[in-house]
C-alpha cells in the first residue's frame, strides 16, 4: 500500500514573521522529489515545520500522512507516523552514545505504544542490525560508541543521520541540505546510503538543496522551486539543469510577487538557525 504525504496551503511563521506563504506538495512512497531554492527562500522552515519544531508556527494549511493530520502532533508522534528529518545541522548531545540514542529511537518507532521506561529492543538483535547497517555505510563499529555528533566531522554527522534513517526506515525522509559542507566523496557515500534505504523500504524522499551536485546521485523524478515562501515552479530533472545553467534570475522575473516577498524575507530574517549551533 503506497502512503501519501500531502502538504496543502501551508503557511508558517517564525516569531510572528510569515516565511511560508502557501506551500502545496504531494509525495508518494517510492518517489524522489527535490526542493530547490535560493538561501532564505524558506526551505529549512518547511523541513522544521513538517517535523513540528515549536518555533515554527503553522498559521494555515494542513499536512497529512494518508488520512492522519500531522499538524497537531508532537514531533515524536510524527516520527512514529513515518516521517524522518535529516538535519542540516545535527545536534550534539554530549554523553549520549549514538548507539544508545538509536536504540531508544528505534524501539519507539517499532513499538509505537511503548511507554517511557518500558523495555527497549533486545540488545543482541539491535546490535546485530546496527552493525550490518554500519558496514553498509562504511563506518567503523566504534562509531556507535561515540557520543552523538560530539566531535564528529561534517561528513561523520551526515553519515550518522543516514545511519539513523536506515535504522528507522521511515515512509518519508526529508533531507535538509544534507550535502552542505561535504566534499564530493562524502556526498556520494551519503547519497548511496539514501538510495539504498529508499530502494529497500520504498521511502519517499524529499531532497532539499540549493546545489545540483547531490541530485546527480539521488535522482529526483519531481523538482520543485521554492521562492518567496511558495512553490513557484514544478517540473522534472530538466528544471535542475535550467537552474544550474541560468540561476534564479528567470524565476524572479517570472514571479514578481514572490520575488518581492523573497527580498523582504532576505532583509527581515536571516535563515533561522535553530537546530544545533554549528560548533
Amino acid at each position: 500500500m503506497s502512503r501519501v504525504l500531502k502538504i496543502e496551503g501551508l503557511h508558517v511563521s517564525v516569531e510572528g514573521k510569515p516565511i511560508l506563504r502557501g506551500v502545496d506538495l504531494t509525495l508518494r512512497q517510492g518517489e524522489v522529489h527535490a526542493l530547490m531554492g535560493p538561501n532564505g527562500s524558506g526551505k529549512s522552515t518547511l523541513s522544521y515545520a513538517l517535523m513540528g519544531h515549536p518555533r515554527y508556527e503553522i498559521t494555515a494549511g494542513t499536512v497529512t500522512l494518508d488520512s492522519q493530520d500531522l499538524t497537531e502532533l508532537e514531533p515524536e508522534e510524527r516520527a512514529k507516523a513515518g516521517l524522518f528529518l535529516a538535519f542540516q545541522y545535527p545536534t550534539v548531545i554530549p554523553g549520549v552514545s549514538l548507539g544508545n540514542f538509536l536504540r531508544h529511537a528505534v524501539s519507539n518507532v517499532r513499538r509505537p505504544d511503548r511507554k517511557e521506561g518500558e523495555d527497549l529492543l533486545p540488545m543482541r538483535d539491535f546490535r546485530k542490525e546496527l552493525r550490518a547497517q554500519m558496514d553498509e555505510l562504511g563506518v567503523d563499529q566504534e562509531f556507535a560508541r561515540r557520543y552523538l555528533n560530539d566531535g564528529f566531522s561534517g561528513g561523520e554527522k551526515k553519515r550518522a543521520e543516514i545511519l539513523q534513517l536506515a535504522m528507522l526506515r521511515p515512509a518519508f525522509a526529508i533531507l535538509d541540505e544534507t550535502d552542505s559542507g561535504l566534499d564530493i566523496d562524502a556526498v556520494r557515500i551519503v547519497s548511496e546510503g539514501v538510495n539504498r534505504v529508499a530502494a529497500r523500504h520504498q521511502t519517499g524522499v524529499l531532497v532539499i538543496t540549493h546545489y545540483e551536485r547531490i541530485l546527480t546521485y539521488i535522482k529526483p523524478e519531481f523538482v520543485h522551486v521554492l521562492f518567496g515562501g511558495r512553490i513557484v515552479e514544478h517540473g522534472g530533472p530538466e528544471l535542475v539543469k535550467l537552474l544550474e545553467s541560468q540561476g534564479y534570475d528567470w524565476v524572479r522575473e517570472k514571479h514578481p510577487e514572490a520575488a518581492q516577498d523573497e527580498d523582504e524575507m532576505e532583509a527581515a530574517v536571516r535563515p533561522p538557525q535553530v537546530a544545533g549551533k554549528a560548533s
Partner: peptide, 8 residues
C-alpha cells in the same frame, strides 16, 4: 527537539 524528531 532533535531527540523528539527521532521518536523519543
Amino acid at each position: 527537539f532533535y531527540a523528539q524528531a527521532r521518536a523519543i
